[in-house]
């Protein structure tokens, strides 16, 4: 169960970016764009959510991509082809609302490009004109460029340091597109909370429908605890069952960002222990 069939190292420097192809036929069969999995790496492990970034129905596999930012992702990254992921549950969350909107702009920032990929694909399959904006800090850590080209009518790239594509942020590119008079019917955005907040700020005055896929702290991922709760349109919602996707203009991003910082001290302790060599998967 949950056997790793392929491993790709996108970026090996710290923090590394890695991708697994995992054998999970039941999850692959039911998965729809926008959904995620929760996994554990060992008996002592915590549960973390990761979005399904690609799949192969015939082979019964799903792809997960992650950056090694703390103990669990660093431990996960140590697994190799042939190893099993200790616990894997999914698909979780509501699928993205897919229909023919017209022209859609899919915006992925950093490793947020990976979860945008199946959504862009589904929107393309539904007959939309898909323009993707991919943002990265620098050229070397840009992921999924080829995959995004396959499911987009056009791909635009921005890098913070100007090493590739437009020098600047994804929001700069989005602003230019809107100001050039392009008619945009939907924007989908996934990436760091601050980026999603800024994207929503850009589209709000133009009343462009904007979906943001939220990445809050989760424990069970099935709606039983509320660790992932956010305020959307003044109401409390659970990201794991009501989302992860919400109308970005309704989301209280400041509250969400404060909640994401709840365990920074503990995360640091765990990571330091891991770097001293205590992290090891089952």
């Amino acid at each position: 169960m949950n056997k790793i069939l392929e491993k790709k190292v996108w970026w090996k420097d710290t923090p590394a970016i890695k991708e697994f192809v995992v054998e999970a036929p039941w999850i692959a069969e039911k998965h729809k764009a926008g959904q995620f999995v929760i996994l554990r790496v060992s008996e002592n492990g915590e549960r973390i959510p990761l979005t399904i970034s690609n799949k192969n129905l015939e082979k019964g596999t799903i792809n997960i991509l992650f950056q090694e930012v703390g103990k669990t992702t660093m431990t996960l990254g140590k697994l190799n082809v042939g190893d099993n992921i200790f616990d894997l549950a999914g698909p979780l969350g509501k699928p993205t609302h897919i229909e023919k909107f017209g022209t859609v702009v899919c915006i992925g920032g950093g490793i947020g490009i990976a979860p945008v990929h199946p959504i862009a694909q589904a929107l393309k399959d539904a007959g939309n004109l898909v323009i993707s904006i991919l943002g990265a800090r620098t050229k070397e850590i840009l992921i999924y460029e080829d995959l995004m080209k396959k499911c987009s009518d056009e791909v635009r790239i921005t890098t913070d340091d100007g090493s590739y594509g437009r020098h600047g942020f994804v929001t700069d590119e989005l602003k230019s597109m809107i100001e050039s008079g392009m008619k945009i019917d939907l924007v989908v955005t996934i990436g760091p909370a601050i980026m999603m907040k800024m994207v929503c700020k850009v589209t709000e005055p133009y009343k462009i429908l904007t979906f943001a896929s939220l990445n809050t702290i989760m424990v069970d991922g099935t709606g039983m605890c509320g660790a992932c709760r956010v305020t959307v349109g003044g109401k409390t919602k659970f990201v794991c069952v009501d989302g992860p996707e919400f109308d970005g203009h309704q989301v209280n991003f400041d509250e969400m960002m404060a909640r994401l910082r709840q365990y920074v001290d503990e995360e640091k302790v765990a990571k330091e222990l891991c770097q001293q060599g205590t992290c090891r998967a089952a």
């Binding site: 002592n44 669990t72 424990v219 605890c225 660790a227 765990a270």
Partner: peptide, 29 residues
């Protein structure tokens, strides 16, 4: 939704199921 507000389900799940009382021996904080 302030930090430090929990449902009992979350608090107890962290402690009982995830053994957070044994952090950092267990990973859940």
């Amino acid at each position: 939704n302030l930090n430090g507000v929990y449902s009992s389900n979350e608090f107890l799940t962290r402690s009982n199921l995830m053994k957070a009382y044994n952090f950092p021996e267990y990973d859940t904080p």
